[in-house]
Computed example of a mutant assay.
Amino acid sequence: MQDETITGRVADAVRGHWVDTHAPDWLRPYARLARWERPIGWWLLLWPCWWSAALAAIAGGKAFPDPWHMVLFLIGAVAMRGAGCTYNDLVDQEIDDKVARTRSRPLPSGQVSRLQAKVFLAAQALTGLAVLLQFNWFAVLLGIASLAVVAVYPFMKRVTNWPQLFLGLAFSWGALMGWAAAFGRLDWPAVALYAGGILWTIGYDTIYAHQDKEDDALVGVHSTARLFGDWTKPALAALYGGATALFALALFGADAGPAAFAGLALGLGHLVWQIVRLDIDDPDQCLKLFRSNTSYGWIVFAGLVLEAMVQGLL
């Protein structure tokens, strides 16, 4: 078997993706820095944005979330997720070099230099800024405020057992942005949606972190997977249950009706399925269940959009 660093592949990258089959050789290391072959990351960043936009549509009596905002959030999620991954790899280069799953990534394997990665990071951040500037000034300032959380997140696994909390603070920020983009202010339903998103993120990233718990222990990296251990399933039940309760509170605050709550109930069923199926000692299954949160996002979003359409027709 060829060494991953010789072939230019990355051990934990998706095989057979367009990055491998169609991207030019010079682009592949940058695509892998941004994790373009793994769309799950930007989907998880996008869902709170789209949920919030749909919730704002319900509260504002509109039949559909603002289509322009939806497109902007999509572009912004892809750009900022890529920027976040690039920044994280710059910060974690030495740790990644010690972990089997990550040592073949572009930076530790030498496929790109730190300077090249920083230039790529700047390009992605500027794309995100261009998207952000399309919104009202309240939303612009709110978006800029999120950078403080993004900046500290990669360091948290060195100092706390709760790095997933800080990921939740960053990845759920869109729950505030969709509402702010629609109304130019924040109201408590958006805050409840944000809080629920944080708990949801801690839950799904705990599942993801179980893949690396042995390597994390060796290099001294902390996680909720290591913290919860054999108590992961009860912890997930509490986290996902709390997230569902907070999402329901947000729906209530926006005067949402049966369709939105039905979507949330179906989504809860999906989260329960994750907990029941989880085997924390099976890395492949952990990855599969983690990725299934894209389906959860669609279920909740579909309920919100259907509710907006129903109310808009009444």
Score class of each variant (00 low, 15 high):
48 P>E: 12
16 G>A: 08
72 L>P: 00
5 T>K: 15
232 T>N: 05
158 R>E: 13
277 R>W: 08
8 G>L: 11
132 L>H: 00
29 P>R: 05
299 I>W: 13
311 Q>I: 02
172 S>Y: 03
277 R>G: 05
32 R>S: 03
152 V>G: 03
268 L>A: 14
142 L>E: 02
272 V>Y: 09
119 V>F: 12
28 R>K: 15
119 V>M: 13
278 L>Y: 11
174 G>K: 01
55 L>D: 01
143 G>V: 04
263 G>S: 10
291 R>L: 02
28 R>G: 00
202 I>E: 14
87 Y>V: 06
304 L>H: 06
118 K>R: 14
216 D>T: 03
265 A>H: 09
224 T>N: 03
301 F>L: 15
56 A>F: 00
171 F>S: 06
261 F>G: 07
122 A>H: 03
1 M>F: 05
199 L>H: 08
1 M>C: 07
103 R>C: 05
53 A>I: 00
35 R>S: 06
194 Y>R: 03
163 P>R: 02
119 V>P: 03
250 A>H: 01
5 T>V: 12
118 K>W: 12
306 L>Q: 00
181 A>E: 12
299 I>P: 13
153 Y>F: 07
4 E>S: 06
101 R>K: 00
221 V>G: 08
216 D>C: 00
146 S>W: 00
73 F>R: 01
261 F>V: 01
16 G>D: 13
181 A>Q: 11
216 D>K: 01
134 Q>G: 01
278 L>T: 11
129 L>Q: 01
158 R>A: 08
263 G>T: 06
9 R>W: 04
169 L>F: 14
262 A>C: 08
287 L>P: 10
190 A>Q: 06
224 T>G: 04
90 L>Q: 12
49 C>M: 08
152 V>K: 05
20 D>I: 07
181 A>V: 13
259 A>F: 11
6 I>H: 12
116 Q>E: 14
108 P>E: 05
280 I>L: 07
282 D>E: 10
102 T>V: 07
111 Q>E: 05
96 D>N: 10
82 G>I: 03
99 V>E: 15
176 L>P: 08
243 A>S: 15
188 W>L: 10
1 M>N: 09
285 Q>A: 06
197 G>A: 04
146 S>Q: 01
